[in-house]
Design a protein around this nucleic acid. Structure first.
Lengths: 337, 337
DNA sequence: AACGTTACCGCAACCGTTCCCGGGAAGCTT
DNA sequence: AAGCTTCCCGGGAACGGTTGCGGTAACGTT
């Protein structure tokens, strides 16, 4: 790889000092028009690009945000698009790392991002993560960190969240209103906050309507279609099968749908189904799956905005918490006449 | 933001030189066991992380790959997962930037990645891009660049591609075998190579089977479901409507499907449909959409591997071109009895 | 003629790390 | 006793860029 042109190269060929070149390049005073012109034209000719590493050393910041997500599915991809949007506007670059839901990778990625001297982090934690020391080490150092979507109540930091409890409540209440009496909860990994909050909303809705919750209607599995399929398949074999299912993600809902269809049951009459995320494909299915819509793009933008707020008031030790409201989109999978 | 611990901090508190600390940290000789132990324990206590910027300045490489993609949809997300896998294994970090299909953003992103001193690039070009000077400037400097999926024949570089022509051929031939006589082609933007190659395969298949191609059955639109919907809606109003459609992406195929359904036509009997990408949702639709499967994950891994090959033999001015074979997955949307 | 002002430019330090080189101390061989 | 290894360690330059400070002309003012 050939060397990129540096300020020294320009200085040497023009027989002036690097200081002058630097000043000329950044439009500072104390440079004559001729030298400035000469520098600028040579810089263009050599396709000069400032070396961020050198800048980083000197200025102690890199104009980059480390973004750490569990995966790049629809939700996170659109959230990242939102982050990217406002970061780019502010002249910042984002470094995206995915943990693949693995704790070890999350560890490695935070370490690497830290080594890369990112100015701060925007994080959604992996489903495996149970200890948060690696994040605490960041906040202890007063590095700006914003958590979005997936977080933990053990973490004290700025957060951009969905009101997951409300989402679970809306979904469950809707199922109750459709006449469901025995509603199953299909959740993600047990230590995942978003899943638990949605479960809390589910349970609250049941109590609100004086329906007693049944332990064997509550299932947890990982976020794969197959796992959901097997979980629901199992539940449907019970002598008292559910007549409604609330799944904490659309992918899980799809797995559930497959099991329901295979069992020869009809939707929504035998079993009504509600998912979560409102991914653009769920309205194409037959039946279209009702789902809780979360504003992923907006969450991304807000995360980046609170990040920059944090960056500005670093001394002020505040941590903002933004909570967005979800919205139920009703489709045929749960709409009984 | 508090300062991260540096080698100097360790040296100062231990009253030794930075050289010794550096040696101790990297397990080099010329360090006594006691000092080494002292350095290591203090480093752990201070949670010392080496400063990549300083390393970059000195060593002229950053152990990072710049990945430039048009978006983060299913295909690119899984490809990136593949890239990430082998990059991580090699101790490299990837910086992902998305152009959002915009030429300007592509320009800005390559510039920023270059400033960040990435060791090379893995690129899939935006659909807007018609000029490739910004990429040529990279290869001229002998910076390792691998293009994958979307590229241009005007670019001389290593590439990891799908045999798109073969894909188009397979899809079209399959439709012909199902008895289709008037097959429409639903393509992406006109300057996009992958779309044009698939079109070439489509046309070749037609000629192979002595079917004359009809200009008004060939449509181009951008990669949105809506655009595809309107395009097909328009075509179906023709007095001689098509009896088969080959769409160059699943999203376009879905748009087509919506138009077909709305027109009250049946699939596959009135119109047979084949998409491209084989995204995991197309088998859930009703009918399941036949699609050309491309090994996205494998393409990502291969891209990263050829990248590292390039990195090793930088002097050798070779450029490898890997071409993968696609595979047609037949579903109900095109399977006539 | 002496002084002040202005315009332009270079010197040198600094950021964190590596690495070459030189050097001192201790132990060993002649 | 003189010389040679061996083991540790530190000095200092280098990477690319910014910046405060000082310096030198040329010019204008008294």
């Amino acid at each position: 790889m050939d060397k990129l042109a540096t300020i020294k190269d320009i200085a040497k060929t023009l027989k002036i000092s690097t200081s002058t070149v630097s000043r000329a390049l950044r439009g500072q005073p104390d440079v004559s028009v001729e030298t400035k012109k000469a520098v600028l034209s040579l810089a263009k000719e050599l396709d000069y690009q400032p070396n961020k590493a050198a800048l980083s050393l000197l200025k102690k910041h890199t104009q980059t945000i480390g973004v750490l997500v569990p995966n790049l599915d629809y939700f996170f991809a659109t959230a990242i698009k939102g982050i990217d949007e406002v970061a780019m506007e502010a002249g910042y670059t984002v470094m995206v790392c995915q943990s693949n839901e693995s704790f070890d990778r999350e560890l490695i990625n935070t370490k690497r991002l830290l080594e890369s001297q990112v100015d701060g982090f925007i994080i959604s934690i992996s489903s495996e993560t149970k200890s948060f020391d690696h994040f605490k080490r960041l906040t202890d150092r007063h590095i700006p960190v914003v958590f979005f979507d997936r977080t933990s109540s053990d973490i004290i930091s700025s957060k951009v969240l969905l009101d997951n409890e409300d989402g679970g409540h809306q979904a469950t209440e809707h199922l109750i209103e459709q006449g469901c009496k025995r509603i199953a909860f299909l959740g993600g990994p047990k230590n995942l906050s978003i899943s638990n909050k949605r479960k809390q909303g589910y349970e609250n809705a049941l109590t609100d309507h004086r329906i007693k919750k049944e332990k064997n209607l509550i299932v947890h599995c990982n976020f794969s279609r197959e796992a959901a399929y097997f979980s629901i398949q199992k539940i449907l074999k019970n002598k008292k099968r559910p007549d409604g299912i609330f799944a904490v993600s659309d992918r899980l809902a799809i797995g559930a749908m497959l099991a329901i269809k295979e069992a020869g049951l009809s939707m929504p009459d035998d079993i009504a189904l509600v998912g979560f995320n409102n991914e653009p494909i769920v309205d194409l299915l037959n039946p279209g799956i009702s789902s809780i819509d979360q504003p992923a793009f907006k969450m991304g933008k807000l995360s980046a905005q609170t990040f920059f707020d944090l960056l500005k008031n670093q001394d002020a030790n505040i941590s903002r918490e933004i909570i967005l409201k979800p919205k139920l989109i009703v489709r045929e999978s749960s709409k009984r006449k």
